[in-house]
Design a protein around this nucleic acid. Structure first.
Length: 259
DNA sequence: ATGGCCTGGGTACCAGGA
């Protein structure tokens, strides 16, 4: 079983790269974030022509999340939105069951937070708290929560921590909020479990040649139930999708399990 | 000099991203 999370920074702008990804990797589940489309604009026909169906929570020009699975895998919408999030209309959480695999997956796009002390930052902490509540509710089922957490869990996950003093994404409050999601949901960070000491960035700023200079962050995670974590055989990114024509600023993060 | 780029909306430039 191959499960992938990818912040595509607009599904319509990225549709050719997404179709390329489906062709190259044939994922059993592809969790997308920042689809940036209204429900009417969601490119269901193009995905269906590639053999995939989708469950999505689409909120217009901002945010938007989706789960894609091959037709015939038994993809079923399970929950749209998160109880207790500050702005439910922002389209940041969607859950789906994949019946043939016996797992639930959730695609999440955590609030960015903008500036420390801002209203969006308070909403970010509230969102992480709501996510932890939901993870605890789902703790008994095989679950993969994948997405753009907008938090770098450790200083190891930041190319230069000194450049992030006073910035979002690295504060102890945000990191504690993210740890609570994993702890209360009985989830493990798949990449970190397999690669305890490596830097494995998933995002690089479009500006200034950040990708080629290695100025990145690891903010996209796949959180896997402890009951499944023994089945993980690999976890890593595909750097090719940060190269070439019109890349997203995030790369796909891929986990493979014996299932 | 603290930015540089990219997206959608809409057709000039702005909000938001991280």
């Amino acid at each position: 079983m191959k499960v992938v999370t990818w912040n595509v920074n607009s599904l319509r702008a990225r549709i050719e790269r997404v179709l390329e990804f489906l062709e190259v990797h044939s994922p059993d589940a592809l969790l997308l974030q920042e689809t940036k489309c209204s429900p009417e604009q969601f490119p269901a026909e193009e995905l269906e022509a590639a053999g995939y169906e989708a469950v999505h929570h689409s909120g217009g020009r901002w945010a938007g999340v989706a789960v894609l699975a091959p037709k015939g895998h038994g993809l079923k919408e399970a929950k749209i939105g998160l109880d207790g999030e500050a702005s439910p209309d922002q389209a940041r959480w969607v859950e789906a069951d994949i019946e043939s695999l016996g797992v639930r997956v959730a695609s999440v796009y955590v609030v960015n937070g903008q500036e420390l002390g801002s209203e969006p930052f308070a909403q970010k902490l509230q969102f992480l708290s709501a996510m932890a509540d939901r993870a605890e509710e789902l703790a008994d089922m095989p679950l993969v929560v994948g997405g753009d957490m907008n938090v770098a869990p450790l200083d190891l996950d930041v190319y230069d921590p000194s450049k992030f003093e006073g910035a979002t994404h690295v504060t102890e409050e945000e990191r504690a909020g993210l740890r609570a999601v994993a702890e209360r949901g009985g989830l493990v960070d798949a990449y970190r479990q397999l690669h305890p000491d490596e830097q494995g960035f998933t995002w690089w700023d479009y500006r200034g040649g950040s990708f080629h200079r290695g100025f990145g962050l690891r903010i996209d995670l796949l959180l896997v139930s402890e009951s499944l974590s023994g089945e993980i055989t690999s976890c890593g990114i595909d750097r090719d999708f940060r190269k070439g024509t019109k890349p997203s600023d995030h790369v796909p993060l891929i986990v493979e399990l014996n299932r």
